[in-house]
């Protein structure tokens, strides 16, 4: 396989890995209310860049699933929709985190295991 194809394959695997973590990244930043674009900036600063085009529909989906709550702020010059975790969202986020730590431990173990051999 030529290098170009190899790189493409690698990229697609990486984006698959990322896709699985986007929801958790977003939820982690929504303990306090954020509007869409502030969240884009925030995530980018923290090294997890997410496209606005991906994030905005995702926020709506999480809201319709009941994980997030939203409020329109119409006081300021531009109308902004603020999202934050709902009670259920907070609960599920905590459980996801617990699961995440276990998964990371197991993954680390399994990867290192292979290195030893």
């Amino acid at each position: 396989m030529d290098t170009k194809k190899q790189n493409e394959l690698y990229e697609s695997l990486i984006s698959e890995l990322r896709r699985g973590t986007i929801v958790m990244s977003v939820m982690s930043q929504l303990k306090a209310p954020q509007y869409g674009y502030s969240l884009v900036v925030l995530l980018e600063e923290k090294g997890i860049p997410v496209d606005a085009g991906t994030l905005y529909p995702l926020l709506r989906r999480l809201e319709s699933q009941g994980l997030l709550e939203s409020n329109w702020d119409v006081e300021s010059a531009k109308p902004r929709k603020y999202y934050q975790l709902s009670d259920m969202g907070r609960d599920i986020y905590d459980r996801l985190c617990t699961h995440w730590y276990e998964m990371v431990d197991s993954m680390n173990a399994i990867i290192r295991d292979k290195d030893v051999k």
């Binding site: 905005y56 709506r60 531009k78 929709k81």
Partner: peptide, 20 residues
């Protein structure tokens, strides 16, 4: 039902991105 809501959100987003 969603059109207006999404439109408003996108309008502000484009504004924000422009300022950036």
């Amino acid at each position: 039902k969603q059109r207006e809501d999404i439109g408003k959100e996108l309008r502000t987003l484009i504004d924000d991105m422009l300022e950036q």
